[in-house]
């Protein structure tokens, strides 16, 4: 089954850490990413640039309307994703629980849509 793991974090949090804590945080993410890729679980992953650089597009009067900023004005913003293939939801949750984000943010686990049989 395919799932997307999405990490939501408070973007201001990183700058509040000491340099040593920041290094440790980066190392933790690197280790997690290497592990999930090496296990053949994740086929791809991505890290998003800050939400301040986001742009949203809606439609108004049949024309696209372009606005600055992310869709949701929430404290935690989408920071990255992993696309994983695992036997079931429990396995997906197990990998989510290993993700360093859980200490300071939230990991969302979302199944991909499959054709009904």
């Amino acid at each position: 089954m395919q799932f997307m793991l999405m990490t939501y974090v408070d973007e201001t949090g990183f700058t509040k850490l000491t340099p040593a804590e920041q290094e440790a945080g980066i190392a933790a993410y690197r280790a997690y990413t290497e592990a999930i890729m090496a296990a053949g679980v994740a086929s791809s992953w991505g890290r998003l640039q800050p939400s301040a650089a986001a742009t949203t597009v809606r439609e108004a009067d049949g024309k696209p309307q372009v606005l600055d900023g992310p869709y949701a004005d929430s404290k935690e913003q989408l920071g990255g994703y992993y696309i994983i293939d695992v036997p079931d939801l429990d396995a997906a949750l197990a990998w989510a629980a290993r993700c360093p984000t859980t200490s300071h943010g939230v990991v969302e686990v979302r199944p991909f849509w499959t054709e009904p049989s």
Binding site: T55, K63, P64, Q65, V66, L67, D68
Partner: peptide, 11 residues
């Protein structure tokens, strides 16, 4: 002007 040229206002 921004939306007409498919750019965000800040951009």
């Amino acid at each position: 002007i921004a939306s007409a040229f498919l750019m965000s206002p800040a951009a």
